[in-house]
């Protein structure tokens, strides 16, 4: 699969969206799952994150979407130190981030339409204002006829597309996707990647975690590789 490239996306951005310095993360008393991570993601960059199972990809992504805080080191998102964020700051920061979870994490009691609209709704949008945008994006990801369906009735691929639609719905500045094309066919994978590239072209910073090393290599985008909690390479 080849990913459409855009010269704008590879131009050197001016400011860092993510800055990690000497970051470590552990859960409880367990050994560190992330160790001495130094990472800078400039604004408008597009990175792949690879690594074997258990290498710490999900933990690193959790740090990036503010579901966890580093147990040591310094993490800055959008120029603000994460450890200094108050409970009032977190929601506003999270609204600038769109996340595609590997396990989708859709809300089963909401329709596909309402799932996709969730970030807009939480940000205070009114249904009549966002209805057209949500419908358009769902149509774009191939869910035009499934807008009123509930997640349990969707196929794996449909769920994944819906999860992606939800993540990008509010035009986040930082898009984090964990295996976003793992459940879709090749054509749809290309189509979804094109969506990420399009959003990246419009200014979003994108991080995509994948097991598919070939996909990462062929993309021509920088690849970050995690190995047993350490960031081995930033190309």
């Amino acid at each position: 699969m080849s990913i459409p490239n855009d010269p704008l996306a590879t131009s050197r951005p001016e400011t860092a969206v993510v800055q990690l310095e000497g970051v470590g993360l552990r859960y409880g008393d367990a050994p560190e799952v992330l160790r001495d991570i130094d990472l800078t993601l400039p604004k408008g960059s597009f990175h792949f994150l690879t690594g074997a199972s258990g290498a710490g990809k999900s933990s690193l992504l959790k740090l990036l979407y503010l579901a966890a805080r580093p147990t040591r080191g310094t993490a800055r998102l959008f120029g603000r130190t994460v450890s200094a964020l108050g409970s009032q700051d977190l929601p506003l920061m999270r609204r600038r981030i769109g996340v595609v979870f590997q396990e989708f994490r859709l809300l089963d009691h909401l329709t596909a339409f309402d799932n996709a609209a969730l970030p807009l709704r939480i940000a205070g949008g009114r249904a009549r204002d966002y209805a057209a945008d949500v419908a358009e994006l769902l149509t774009w990801v191939g869910l035009r006829d499934r807008m009123d369906a509930y997640p349990p009735t969707l196929s794996g691929g449909e769920k994944q597309r819906l999860a992606i639609a939800r993540a990008v719905m509010a035009r986040p500045e930082l898009i984090i996707a964990d295996e976003p094309t793992g459940s879709v066919d090749q054509d749809m994978a290309v189509r979804l990647m094109r969506l990420f590239v399009e959003l990246n072209r419009l200014g979003a910073t994108v991080v995509i975690a994948t097991h598919d090393n070939a996909l990462a290599r062929q993309s021509g985008r920088p690849v970050l590789r995690l190995d047993r909690g350490r960031l081995m390479r930033e190309a």
Binding site: A131, E136, A170
Partner: peptide, 25 residues
């Protein structure tokens, strides 16, 4: 909050009168 048009214009969707479902089941 609006996102820019990506590819389709679907005016028939406007004012569809959808009521958002409850956030809790």
């Amino acid at each position: 909050m609006r996102i820019p048009r990506l590819s389709l214009d679907l005016p028939w969707m406007r004012g569809s009168g959808r009521r958002p479902g409850p956030l809790l089941p």
